[in-house]
Design a protein around this nucleic acid. Structure first.
Lengths: 344, 344
DNA sequence: CTGAAAGCGCTAACAC
DNA sequence: GTGTTAGCGCTTTCAG
């Protein structure tokens, strides 16, 4: 049950254990003959390097902590998938943690990760307060934020241009003839979402549209809560809008489900535009039009920056805001005139 | 940048560092006064326990390795989510790895996890050969398999009754009047899948049905490969079946997409039954009928067994085969007589 | 090219 | 109650 150590094999090979260490590490200060002999014995005895012990002396663990607000959410798990890929390519393993959107748990897992001597941390912040709450820790270990929430903070982050994404979506909806567009899922406490709301308001202002909101009182987003919110929304007829801009694809999916149940046809009766472009959006019969967050690029750049910092890169933090992209599928169509006029 | 150690705070507190260790560990052999004093200093100086160092002496890491065949697959990520939840509840962190369905990579990550001194490993095997390939390692670290593939092997595993699941699905389809049922996605090399095929064949035999197959030549399953396979299948008309039993929900989703494109209506023209009950299956407009694998229960029992072994539990390995469940949604309906008779 | 020895930060057994 | 000390398995000088 217990592992074979350097000493064990040194004994068998009749060399000192520093020699064994050299054989293993590919050092040049050793003859090819002894190296082969030692390596063979290692194989025979089933030796595996004890990374815990190595970490003690090298002071590095080749481990990156990934803190998500939730693991059980398509956007997060897609992001996690990309982060895992890129970190692995760079020679790191991931320890996966969740903050459950709670500042306190976030702080706790951050400390845990520090205790485990993670070489660096990638974090999707739990809320607006995350930076302040973690500030002292962030100074001790390279950290990069994903997904905004860090305006004016001296940390590296990569996010998508949320303002621009919403404006893009609004322009599209407006070009389709919609003038009564409801913003679905406004969520106080999240910087990401306040930026999106700003974009919405700006578009409304520019085009002389009335702003309409359906607020999300939870501090997370899911199909289920989108569904429940939508049920409430649909209980008042006639509907005073021809299109819904959902603040996340999961919410959009919930809306579609509620609409199905309530006999509202998408897109014939109302158009729905999402945000995120999770893989669900591309499913047959769903075909959700949406604003894409470039998840792979976000993961790639975040990992690149983090690894750079770990390896000693100095200088200004990377503060990268990536452009979003409009993905046209089938959930948005030209506004139906009669519905629109219903409430004018 | 470097961390505060026990010694550092011992110096400040003017005590020996074993006293500090005692204060931290909640030992009783210390006066309340010094404990408080020490704890305060720890807080002020921002001390975090070095788990790497602790692991060196305790020989335990509170880490569990999770090896999946792929992270980018709904079934796997749902499973991962549950495993993460249950391990966290038991006080362990997860290191997430992928075998990419390759025996060689599987062996590699298994060894890596051993090197990191994971206290235990939960693995979804890459293929039939996994057990044999890992046998020597498995003796060194507590391991539990998820998702079959381990018949007659002296390892703990928890899986679903695949044979029973298929029989259940077939009975349902047959009760709906289908007699021409194609099994979609047969995949050689996977034990799970050969058990399912056995179930299919048994049902066909019992009811005097002709077996029809569409083989999956890849060693993985995805929406995309389901789609491509289905496109081939649909290129020969008329369709010699009224229902398709897909070996996975992802494949079923691909079939639906292809059907959509080719003007085949689901369920009016053909019924589709999936396997797994991934969360996608429950989406509005998709409403895929399927056989559920009890993922949460599988995760829970696997974690329970693993933690038991880690804590020294002896005795026979747990070999648990959970019952599947038929989930009726909207993708299967009564067979249309004319279509069925077309090829009789 | 190889061996001896120090020490990473901590826990735990042993003294006092 | 508190201090001293011996490792845990490894890497890395420093000698030879």
């Amino acid at each position: 049950m217990s592992y074979v150590t350097l000493k064990d094999i040194a004994k068998v090979a009749k060399v000192s254990y520093s020699t064994v260490s050299r054989a293993l590490s590919g050092s040049k200060e050793i003859s090819e003959a002894t190296r082969q002999r030692v390596l063979n014995i290692c194989r025979e005895m089933g030796y595996t390097t004890d990374f815990v012990a190595r970490s003690m002396v090298t002071g590095t663990t080749n481990t990156i902590g990934l803190i998500l607000t939730s693991v059980n959410n398509p956007f997060m798990s897609e992001l996690a998938n990309y982060v895992e890929q890129y970190t692995r390519a760079a020679g790191y393993n991931i320890i996966l943690c969740s903050s459950a959107h709670e500042l306190e748990q976030e702080q706790q897992v951050f400390q845990l990760l520090m205790g485990r001597r993670a070489d660096g941390i990638i974090i999707v912040p739990a809320s607006q307060g995350s930076y302040a709450s973690l500030e002292t820790f962030i100074k001790k270990v390279p950290t990069v934020f994903i997904s905004g929430n860090s305006r004016d903070m001296p940390v590296s982050y990569v996010s998508v241009d949320n303002h621009q994404g919403i404006v893009m979506g609004m322009e599209y909806l407006i070009s389709l003839g919609h003038r009564d567009i409801l913003y679905f899922g406004r969520r106080p406490g999240s910087l990401t979402h306040s930026v999106r709301v700003e974009g919405y308001l700006a578009s409304c202002g520019k085009h002389g549209l009335n702003a309409q909101f359906k607020d999300n009182t939870n501090n997370f987003t899911s199909i289920h809560n989108g569904y429940e919110l939508a049920k409430e929304l649909f209980s008042h007829r006639p509907l005073p809008f021809t299109a819904i801009f959902a603040s996340s694809d999961t919410n959009a999916l919930g809306i579609i489900k509620a609409a199905d149940e309530d006999g509202i046809r998408v897109p014939e009766d109302i158009s729905i535009l999402g945000f995120d472009n999770i893989s669900y959006a591309d499913l047959p019969k769903i075909e959700l039009s949406t604003i894409e967050q470039p998840k792979e690029m976000m993961a790639a750049r975040a990992v690149e920056e983090l690894v750079g910092r770990i390896r000693g890169k100095k200088g200004e933090p990377l503060q990268l805001i990536l452009p979003p992209k409009l993905i046209k599928r089938k959930s948005c169509v030209k506004a139906v005139q009669e519905t629109a006029s219903l409430q004018s």
